[in-house]
């Protein structure tokens, strides 16, 4: 191998690494731009919908002072603008969802992986927190109950 070859090779190698870094930067930039577009396109939602996969769940909240609302398989809607703590109780399973400042966050749960608790607070339409072991899904929705005067009640179940 000639010296010129070695020099040529090391130059080539450096150029390849520079290209690699450019490629990595391009990927990160593309991801950033897409993230920005998605962020801008998403609107903050007005309601959250709690869904229970299977079985019976007792959904209650500490603000209304009423007895817990019993829910079978189905969903439950809360507005995001009222501060409250929602307790979702199932057989041997509990999830506590905190709603404040237009965000909903799972603060406590006794599921084994705690992925739902570690999830970030949600506020934008389509965002969701899922607790797979308990079969609980919390999703942000734009529209609440179909009725126009939503101020009359603070929770609807069906």
């Amino acid at each position: 191998m000639f010296d010129s070859d070695i020099i040529h090779n090391s130059e080539n190698r450096r150029r390849r690494y520079v290209n690699d870094i450019i490629l990595l930067a391009a990927c990160l930039l593309a991801a950033g731009i897409i993230l920005l577009i998605i962020r801008c396109a998403q609107d903050t939602g007005g309601y959250i919908e709690i869904r229970i996969e299977a079985g019976e769940a007792c959904i209650s909240d500490n603000t209304s002072g009423e007895e817990g609302l019993s829910v079978r398989t189905g969903s439950c809607i809360y507005p995001l603008n009222v501060e409250r703590e929602v307790i979702i109780e199932q057989d041997n399973a509990i999830n506590i969802l905190r709603i404040s400042d237009g965000h909903a966050d799972m603060t406590e749960a006794d599921c084994p992986d705690l992925i739902c608790v570690h999830s970030k607070p949600i506020s934008r339409i389509g965002e969701s927190i899922v607790c797979l072991p308990h079969g609980v899904t919390v999703t942000v929705a734009q529209d609440g109950p179909e009725a126009a005067d939503t101020d009359d009640y603070d929770a609807v179940t069906w």
Partner: peptide, 18 residues
């Protein structure tokens, strides 16, 4: 809806790939 995952998947793919 899962398009929201695109940025996270691009970044994770790039880093693990690298």
């Amino acid at each position: 809806r899962i398009v929201y995952y695109v940025p996270a998947l691009i970044i994770s793919g790039a880093l693990t790939g690298a």
